[in-house]
Design a protein around this nucleic acid. Structure first.
Lengths: 292, 292
DNA sequence: AATAATTAATAACTATGGGTTATCAATTGG
DNA sequence: CCAATTGATAACCCATAGTTATTAATTATT
């Protein structure tokens, strides 16, 4: 009375259901026959159903027992899988890593990372979302994101940052613009044009860097439009609404009618960094961090 | 070492996972806190994964623990149902089929189905529960329901859907409303009245259909109230808070002071569908499916 | 800064009940 | 009719779930 069903009962039941012989089943389970008999009887009482028909010389399953046998096999299978999966997740060799990125990181850095991780941990999955610097930092802090690819100088307490790539800057012009690779010597040559820039979000380091490129060459750019998405900026340039300065690696992967001219003789570099939360509890992140 | 996972561990784990507090969880389980602590620790050793993070002042789930919690809830549900089914089968029943339905399906379709099944399989039992579209889909997916009667256009992967009835729409008016069978020619006649509608849940197909009936006749209804239950809608209409458009079959089975006027000259039909899960393991469902 | 009140973990114990051995009653086969 | 084999019963034992008492660590209160 008041007993509780346990997996032990299921194990014993399956053995008897397969052997259809209490002594043999008991042997297989390395327990004594009376012990087994009693557990099965208890099980029948708990469930409230007769599972076996014993007529002193042979044992057979009832219809209810037949049904239960199928289900228990399924349940055990499910539990085994779940337990194994749980251990894998704990060890980080399975699970999901949520990545945020600026458009300019998707061309080179991220694909390389994914390939390397996939080689060693093929069961780790990724979710990718293009986000602004600001949103990434917020999402990292609130544990909605595991890794962010940003262009920032400072991050809040508890967030780690590591520089992983430096890039040169390029001037982006409409395809039919007069300037070309040979004639382009300095950004000062476009000092009178309108500029399309990335919005300054969270940290203004990126925005300021581009301003300083111009100021170093003796002029302050006239900013006509701002956007967070590279695609949009290129479209604006293509439409003749201005010129832009962006990291050089952005020239790959888009199919637009603009030309890139790498800017010579400047000290500014576009630095791409990875960020993650120090006490992030996703074990899969540990594995991925090795590749950063 | 050499210990075996038991359902007891799962029960205890769930209690701690829900309370996130060892003492409170122990109280709920009517055992002592140290006993619980030891069982959880043992469980972590057996599985080979850290399930909780205890830092002396508060307890939280690890990612692996989070995963396990979800799965265990599912496993328990499955075991409970299996045990109940086994007992039912033992008692000569061929099992239970759990049915969910929208209020508007109980008048005609479900009684017909039950009678037909009962003729051929008098030993199959039914449990019936009125539920919203959304709740039915959720319950079907999590194996808490075998069959649902819904008004939906799309269902998630793994769920089957079959249209089984089309119905006309009727306008529902207070008993003393001026309009009657003879004078009612078009819904446009009530374009200035307030409308009481079914809430749009999960899929908005049903809601949109009613809106389109009005729009086809050249007006947008003023929606003053929404409800999921037919009974409530009728009560609101009766009280003079608005008029309603519902499937015609709803006029039977309620005893309210409202009148139904079938809407003429419209193309919209109210389609009722049955849904069930593709890999549902309830053998009684197989037998019932033939009658759908 | 000192004290009180929390938390979960440890240690040592107690007793429930799973598992044991010994035996029985029933069936079958030579 | 006796030997052999079946599962069930009865009485015992001991592993371990669960107990009480205590500790270590942390936070809140004075």
């Amino acid at each position: 009375m008041g007993y509780q069903l346990e997996l032990r009962h299921f194990t014993y039941f399956l053995a008897v259901a397969e052997e259809l012989h209490f002594r043999k089943a008991a042997e297989r389970l390395f327990i004594s026959q009376p012990g087994l008999s009693r557990q099965i009887k208890q099980m029948e009482e708990i469930i409230g159903a007769e599972l076996f028909i014993r007529n002193k010389r042979n044992v057979s399953l009832t219809v209810a027992g037949e049904y239960l046998k199928k289900e228990i096999a399924y349940i055990f299978n499910h539990i085994d899988f779940t337990v194994k999966q749980t251990a894998l997740i704990d060890k980080g060799s399975e699970g999901e890593v949520r990545i945020g990125f600026l458009g300019s990181a998707i061309q080179t850095v991220i694909p390389e990372l994914l390939v390397k991780v996939d080689e060693e941990y093929p069961k780790i999955q990724f979710s990718l979302e293009e986000m602004s610097n600001y949103d990434q930092v917020k999402a990292i802090v609130s544990d909605e994101l595991d890794i962010g690819f940003v262009r920032l100088a400072r991050v809040p307490d508890g967030v780690c940052i590591k520089e992983i790539q430096t890039d040169t800057f390029s001037l982006v012009l409409p395809k039919d613009h007069l300037l070309n690779k040979e004639s382009f010597k300095s950004v000062a040559q476009v000092s009178s044009e309108h500029f399309v820039l990335f919005s300054s979000d969270y940290s203004s380091i990126y925005y300021n860097k581009i301003m300083s490129i111009c100021e170093d060459k003796g002029f302050t750019p006239i900013v006509s439009h701002k956007s967070v998405h590279a695609q949009t900026i290129f479209k604006l340039v293509e439409s003749g609404l201005g010129v832009a300065i962006v990291p050089t690696s952005l020239q790959y992967g888009f199919d637009l009618n603009v030309k890139f001219l790498e800017i010579p003789n400047i000290t500014q570099k576009a630095e791409l960094s990875v960020i993650w939360k120090e006490d992030n509890r996703n074990p899969a992140l540990e594995k991925v961090k090795k590749f950063l």
